[in-house]
Design a protein around this nucleic acid. Structure first.
Ligand SMILES: [Zn+2]
Ligand SMILES: [Zn+2]
Ligand SMILES: [Zn+2]
Ligand SMILES: [Zn+2]
Lengths: 159, 159
DNA sequence: TGATAGCGGACATACTATAACATATCAAGG
DNA sequence: CCTTGATATGTTATAGTATGTCCGCTATCA
């Protein structure tokens, strides 16, 4: 089970495991993992990339699973709400969660060259930011952390 | 010169100093601090809040300074490009920079109750995230760090 | 059987951002 | 003076992202 998606790996297993983990969690929590929601998750898992809502919608349309924006947004909202996917604010796009179900404060590493996105842990309740925040009396509840740069593969190519 | 805008302070001075600091820097760097750009900066400085491009545009329109989206976006682009303002990705909105001219990797503390935004330092090249990134060979160039929570004033009120 | 709740279909609309082209302004050089 | 190039602004249109609302279906449960 790789963490980043930058390395070569058995991506078929990646998808299968991702879907089945969410399937399990939905069953456990009594959530409805409907066909549209499952398909959207599969699409997000297809590459370790962020997909826009309308990219998703196009695919759904091709497959006869829905043709109007709310269909895609509702599925995405469901996935995000339950921690099965995340929104990348910088890209107005969405990625599958790398460790669905585990509650976490995710951070993202976004390659500006190949657009791959990796998920890292960045609990903002420690570290320098937390100190600054505490210093002015601000209580952090959630945090968006999105780092942009070059992934290991693209540093050599330097395109 | 307060750092956060959460505390009571002489906000008139806040605006004057903000504008004049940018004025100086523009002069020093040969940048044109035109009426529209100045006015947009003033609007951003009015509250320690993020303003949407169309909020800005409405104000500009009222004042006869421009009526079409590109006018606002171009002024905002100028301010952001030269570090006089920042975009808050989570809000699709913009804030004046708290320390214009100094190059920095800003982080933001966004109050979910009163919508005030404070700027903090969070250089992502140290800390835990940098370690994770280094661990997978990812080179961080820029980072969006936007923390959401309650500012000191709103923690009491707890609305 | 009827009430309730959740999901999805469909239409319309709002909000955010940019492309593309035209015009204005000003400074440098012929 | 006139041209030219650079920068900023004006204007129209369009692209891209996200939500509101209403309706019908189905499953569940009293
Ligand atoms: Zn994979
Ligand atoms: Zn890459
Ligand atoms: Zn102030
Ligand atoms: Zn507040």
């Amino acid at each position: 089970m790789e963490t980043t998606g930058f390395e070569r790996h058995d991506h078929g297993a990646c998808i299968r495991e991702g879907v089945s983990a969410v399937d399990d969690r939905c069953r456990a929590q009594g959530l409805q993992f409907t066909p549209v929601r499952r398909r959207v998750l599969e699409l997000l898992l297809e590459g370790h990339r962020a997909l826009g809502a309308y990219d998703i919608l196009d695919r759904l349309r091709e497959e006869g699973l829905g043709s109007q924006p709310p269909v895609a947004y509702r599925a995405l909202d469901f996935l995000v709400k339950h921690g099965f996917a995340h929104k990348i604010e910088r890209l107005n796009a969405f990625v599958a969660c790398a460790c669905p179900g585990e509650s976490h404060m995710p951070a993202f590493l976004i390659c500006r060259n190949c657009d791959k996105v990796a998920e890292a842990e960045a609990d903002m309740r420690d570290g320098r930011l937390a100190e600054s925040a505490a210093g002015v009396g601000f209580r952090i509840e959630r945090a968006v952390v999105e780092a942009e740069g070059l992934c290991p593969n693209c540093q050599g190519a330097a395109a």
